[in-house]
């Protein structure tokens, strides 16, 4: 379709405005992450978008290295929270993907578990806050409070609906001919699933896993309730960072926020093609 030059001008102007508004908060955090202490709370004329004296001190500080300006010692460094975030998100993704994929295949091919689509949507619908009382009691009983494996288990359950629905739509679309050929060859149905279906579905499996990982990595509330000290995740750790001497540790927090924000943004761009399907429970394909 040809458009008029006036429309093109309007379009670029509108998009430029949207881009500016999108990037503004992000750029400020990036800038803050590289600012030395004196610039953290500079106001008025001293307020700059580009650090005057850019430094990596904020990153060094959260990882426990001593820096020239920040003489406060951290009670604990960012290493452990990063490890906790990684472990809980990765194993949570594993639980969700293994259970979700198997169940999606069972429903898509054999019609088993017809109750699951609705049950899992309801699971997703509920605010986590509204089911946390029993979860906290059960987790305490099972000794899962403040452990990464306890977090992984609840993450696996919380993101199971996404894994299930995404894989279900992929299985529904997959041509049956390949599987049927293998069946005629005499493979058992389980062997067909393991040796034919799953390898063929490598790409969809990877995008689903990445989406589930992003969702797990992004959690704050659940970790806030289920961890206390040893295995807090990055967002919980970040929120708790402050010192009695310097008040808000703006730069250090921004550095951590930047580290936490980078993986999902990169992964999200990588799986852009499947985002719509994943986030609308397969109601919409791109």
């Amino acid at each position: 379709m040809r458009r008029s030059p006036a429309f093109e001008t309007f379009r670029y102007a509108a998009i430029a405005l949207a881009l500016a508004l999108t990037l503004l908060p992000i750029l400020w955090m990036v800038s803050m992450a590289f600012k030395p202490i004196p610039e953290w709370s500079a106001t008025g004329a001293d307020l700059t978008w580009i650090p005057r004296a850019p430094t990596l001190d904020n990153f060094r500080f959260v990882f426990g290295e001593s820096t020239s300006d920040l003489i406060v010692a951290l009670e604990r460094t960012a290493w452990r929270p990063i490890l906790s975030s990684l472990l809980s998100a990765v194993f949570g993704t594993l639980i969700a993907m293994v259970c979700g994929t198997a169940a999606a295949y069972g429903l898509s091919r054999f019609g088993s578990g017809k109750n699951l689509p609705l049950a899992l949507i309801q699971l997703r619908l509920f605010p986590p806050m509204a089911v946390m009382i029993p979860v906290m009691i059960m987790w305490a009983f099972l000794g899962l409070i403040d452990t990464w494996w306890g977090l992984a288990l609840i993450y696996g359950i919380v993101t199971l609906p996404f894994a299930f629905w995404l894989m279900k739509t992929f299985f529904d679309e997959m041509p049956r001919e390949i599987e049927e050929a293998a069946l005629v060859e005499g493979c058992s149905r389980f062997r067909v699933f393991m040796k034919i279906t799953l390898p063929v579905m490598r790409a969809p499996l990877a995008s689903s896993a990445l989406l589930v990982f992003i969702l797990n990595w992004s959690d704050y509330l659940i970790a806030l309730l289920l961890t206390t000290k040893n295995w807090v995740t990055i967002p919980v750790y970040m929120a708790s960072l402050s010192s009695s001497m310097t008040g808000q540790l703006y730069g250090a927090k921004a550095a951590l926020g930047l580290l936490a924000a980078i993986p999902p943004v990169i992964l999200g761009i990588a799986i852009q093609k499947h985002l719509v399907r994943g986030l609308t429970f397969g109601a919409l394909k791109q």
């Binding site: 992003i214 703006y250 761009i269």
Partner: peptide, 26 residues
């Protein structure tokens, strides 16, 4: 680029806006 905000960890987004809205903030 326009899709980026939805991928930022919500807690981090909260902190971004916490900084933006400081009275001496940007």
């Amino acid at each position: 680029i326009l899709l980026m905000p939805m991928m930022v960890v919500p807690a981090v987004a909260g902190y971004m806006f916490f900084m933006l809205f400081q009275s001496g903030g940007p």
